[in-house]
Amino acid sequence: MKKKNTIADLLFNNRFWKSVFRHDYPDNDLSRSEAMTSNLFLHIQSVKVHTNTIRPGYTLGLGLISFYLFIILTITGVLLMFYYIPSIERAYNDMKDLEFAVSYGIILRNLHRWGAHGMVAFVFFHMCRVFYTGGYKQPREFNWGIGIVLLILTLFLSLTGYLLPWDQLAFWAITIVANLIGTSPPESILGASLRYIVVGGREVGQNALIRFYVMHVIVLPLVAAVLIGVHFWRIRKDGGISRPAEE
């Protein structure tokens, strides 16, 4: 890059910029490919993509929207953890505090709640898109399977979060689901044990709350994050996003 003494030149053509990004501002083919390959976060995507990949009418951006909601949920979730104690004495009051005492606490909670509903919906829409465009077929069979597992994980992430406000809505919804788990045959052996493991006792109480909390803030997000990584990596390994055969 030659010195041109423009503002862009001042910003991008200096030692600090180069020390961070290790390449010039991406305005030619070489630096554009370096922008992808020399960046830890971007290099899971290829340097070049097929024009069908960036056609909004093909993917509708549904998978990416699901991922963005996951990111927003992770960030708002960590912030909510500063204000929330998973104890049946305190949980409900913490929700009230978020609404009335914490600055912008209600916005934080709304972002997390509506984002979670949105993620369930958009992961489902994304699955529909992949099916209706035939994207699940060879060589993407395995990634389709990972996607189904991610849908189930999303449902369980949402369900475990549903109990945490410890209001009537939360308590009885989880009681129904716990009773449902208890019907796995043979009920007296497997069903009862499964229900006991999930709830941590006979009734939904403190043990259930801490179990759902730990699953919700650590176990399930960690598994989901790893599988999302595999899911993205496999898109690339399987030849990019599905597209019509070239004539």
């Binding site: 916005i107 709304n110 709640r113 009537q168 129904i176």
Partner: peptide, 27 residues
């Protein structure tokens, strides 16, 4: 999130069963 508040009912009460009790919408 600015327009609509997330629902929050009364505190959980095991002795007061709502009728009907419903699971989250996706279940």
């Amino acid at each position: 999130s600015i327009l609509f508040n997330a629902p929050l009912e009364e505190q959980a009460n095991p002795s007061n069963t709502p009728n009907p009790a419903k699971s989250p919408w996706y279940f």
